[in-house]
Nucleic acid binder design. Structure first.
Length: 262
DNA sequence: AAGCATAGCAACCGCCAGCTT
DNA sequence: AAAGCTGGCGGTTGCTATGCT
C-alpha cells in the first residue's frame, strides 16, 4: 500500500517557526480547536505541514505546558517510569502534567542519562554498572550496535487486587510477565548525555537475548541464549496499582492479553 | 578574541496503528 | 478484506548557545 505524503513539501516552510506563524496557529486553534491537522495549515493560512503544526502546538504552544526546569521529583518520576516503560516517552509524559514527550525525551538524553551514569547506574537497564566498569565504559558499550529487537520482562505480583485482571481475587497472588518490545536503532551521532562522540539514543534494555527469545518465543529449540532469564530484570509491583499508576488500562502498548500468567 | 568542541533543544522523518471508505 | 487516510510515536538531525583552549 502506497503512502500519500502528509503534505505538499514543495510549498511548505521548514525549520524554526516565526512569531507570526505561532500567532496564526494559536489564533486558529483557539477559534476552531485541535484536530484535522492535515487541513489546518491551509485553513490557518500557514505554509506548513500538518504534522509540523501539530508538533509545534503540542510541544511548544499549548497553554497548559509547564515551561522551565524539571524538579527533582519530576526527575525521579521519569527515572522510575523509564525503568518500567523504557522509551515510551508519550506514556511517561502522560504522568507528568505540563510536560511533553519530546521534552522528556530530550531531557532524558541530555540530563538524566548523565545523572544515572554518575550514580553508577546504567540508564538503559537501570541496574548498577557492573564492577570495574566505569560510566564511560558503559557509555561506550551502549554505543555498540543494538540487537534487532530487545525484550524486557517485568514480573508482577498482585496482592491487593486493585483493578486486577479477571479470574483473580483480592487475596490471590498473581504473577505475570509483561513483555515490552522495542526495536534498536543506530545512529552515527551521539546523544549528549555522555562525553565523546554523539551516539545512539537507543534507550531499550540492554538485556541480551537471542532472536527467538526477542520475539517472545520461549523455550524454542532455536534459542541460543537459553532464555537468559536470570539476566532479565524483574521487579515486583502490584499489578492493578501499577496499571492505575501508569494509566495504562486499555493501553495498546501494554495489552492485558500479553500478560503471561503463571 | 578566535576557533573549536560539546551541550541542549526544536523540529523533521519514517513508520505504525486505528479508523473510514 | 483491502485500500486509503490520519494522527501519533520514537528516533534522529540541524541549529544555536555555551564552554574551553
Amino acid at each position: 500500500m502506497g503512502r500519500s505524503p502528509c503534505c505538499e513539501k514543495a510549498h511548505t516552510n521548514k525549520g524554526a517557526w516565526t512569531k507570526e506563524e505561532d500567532d496564526r496557529l494559536i489564533a486558529y486553534i483557539r477559534a476552531h480547536g485541535e484536530g484535522c491537522w492535515r487541513s489546518l495549515p491551509k485553513a490557518a493560512g500557514l505554509l506548513r505541514c500538518g504534522k509540523s503544526c501539530r508538533l509545534r502546538w503540542i510541544n511548544y504552544l499549548r497553554p497548559d505546558l509547564k515551561r522551565g526546569n524539571f524538579t527533582e521529583e519530576e526527575d525521579e518520576l521519569i527515572i522510575k517510569l523509564h525503568g518500567l516503560l523504557g522509551n515510551k516517552w508519550s506514556l511517561i509524559a502522560g504522568r507528568l502534567p505540563g510536560r511533553t514527550d519530546n521534552e522528556i525525551k530530550n531531557y532524558w538524553n541530555t540530563h538524566i542519562r548523565r545523572k544515572l551514569l554518575s550514580r553508577g547506574i546504567d540508564p538503559t537497564t537501570h541496574r548498577p554498572i557492573s564492577g570495574g566498569e566505569q560510566p564511560s565504559a558503559a557509555a561506550a558499550a551502549a554505543s555498540a550496535p543494538p540487537a534487532a529487537a530487545e525484550v524486557r520482562t517485568i514480573s508482577f505480583s498482585s496482592g491487593g487486587g486493585v483493578g486486577a485482571t479477571d479470574n483473580t481475587n483480592n487475596n490471590e497472588v498473581v504473577q505475570g510477565k509483561m513483555m515490552l518490545l522495542s526495536c534498536g536503532s543506530t545512529s552515527n551521532r551521539n546523544m549528549s548525555g555522555a562525553t565523546g562522540p554523539r551516539r545512539t539514543a537507543s534507550g531499550s534494555s540492554a538485556v541480551s537475548l537471542c532472536f527467538t527469545c526477542s520475539l517472545g518465543i520461549q523455550n524454542s529449540k532455536d534459542c541460543t541464549c537459553h532464555n537468559n532469564s536470570a539476566a532479565i530484570g524483574t521487579s515486583n509491583l502490584n499489578i492493578g496499582g501499577a496499571y492505575d499508576f501508569l494509566g495504562l488500562k486499555g493501553s495498546s502498548v501494554l495489552d492485558y492479553r500479553s500478560l503471561e500468567m503463571k
